[in-house]
């Protein structure tokens, strides 16, 4: 076990980690198409949970249920229970705007606002009223850019448009934008799929650093990436969770033959 851990390159926290988010009997359908069926998953605090599986298996749909981004899709029906700190996030009395401030999201393609780098990072704090004055706002912006590992690269060009950065920098700007509102959970939907290997490595390092303060859920197509960055992994197949467990366990000793088939490259 010790050897395997060293091989993957990460320390696993103790099993006693509290559950941050959980789903019970989660069904999602787009019109007549059932995208998820009976998904039960626990996401633990200050861990990176990786969601893997072949295309169209429902990973992204699941991720978008966690911050209710599926609400914006016409004809999408969600049933079942999704909780954050034990509270149902689909509760009618819950303010979805507030929820999304607690659960940030980073998308597949870097999508900075067509505004300056500063305004990109400052947008969230501004709309949520997190800063009382300009100095506080400046501090939040700088801290988030530092946490996203982008500050040194952009400190002299805060007024330039966010879209003028390289792909990897743009994605880190999007991460900075998400953490500027101090979320508790960060959802990442294949954050490296549009990036080159060096930028990918930079983001992976960053994910590992962010784990200290945030709970992270990452969808990825890249199994090596899942193995490198996550502590726990869920394998999705045809809208269901086939297997969920410790990343090292899952990759070295999969219980289900479909999991084994996928991670050894026999399908998917």
């Amino acid at each position: 076990m010790e050897a395997q851990t060293a091989l993957i390159g990460h320390n696993r926290p103790a099993d006693a980690t509290p559950v941050k988010m959980a789903t019970r009997d989660l069904d999602v359908s787009y019109g007549a198409i059932q995208a998820l069926a009976g998904v039960e998953l626990d996401i633990r605090e200050n861990e990176v949970t990786a969601l893997i599986g072949p295309s169209g298996c429902g990973k992204t749909t699941f991720l978008r249920c966690l911050n209710r981004m599926n609400d914006t899709i016409e004809g999408c029906v969600v049933s079942g229970l999704v909780t954050l700190d034990g509270h149902d996030i689909y509760d009618r009395s819950l303010d979805v705007v507030q929820l999304r401030a607690r659960i940030g999201m980073v998308f597949q393609k870097p999508n900075p606002f067509p505004k300056s780098i500063y305004d990109n990072a400052a947008y969230g704090p501004r709309i949520h009223g997190l800063a009382a004055n300009r100095d506080e706002l400046d501090e939040i912006v700088v801290t988030s850019l530092e946490k996203a590992g982008l500050w040194k690269e952009v400190r002299d060009r805060m007024g330039e448009p966010g879209t003028s950065l390289s792909g990897g920098q743009q994605q880190r700007l999007c991460i900075a934008r998400a953490i500027a509102v101090s979320p508790e959970v960060i959802l990442m939907d294949e954050p490296c799929s549009a990036l080159d290997p060096i930028a990918t490595a930079r983001i992976e390092e960053l994910i590992d650093e962010l784990r200290e303060n945030y709970t992270i859920v990452i969808v990825t197509h890249n199994m090596q990436q899942a193995a490198r960055v996550s502590q726990r992994t869920a394998f999705f197949h045809l809208g269901q969770v086939v297997e969920m467990g410790d990343t090292v366990e899952l990759f070295t000793n999969p219980q289900d033959e479909r999991t084994q088939g996928y991670i050894t490259g026999r399908f998917g």
Binding site: N67, M69, T72, V97, Q98, L99, R100, A101, G104, M105, F107, K109, N111, P112, F113, P114, Y123, G124, I127, H128, C174, R177, A178, V181
Partner: peptide, 27 residues
């Protein structure tokens, strides 16, 4: 206007009106 712009704003907790006034309409 690319949907990614709307999603970016929604995901950070902008209300639908803020998404329109701050992002979609200016774009």
């Amino acid at each position: 206007v690319p949907p990614s712009l709307r999603e970016a704003a929604l995901a950070i907790g902008a209300s639908p009106l803020q998404v329109v006034m701050h992002h979609t309409l200016p774009a």
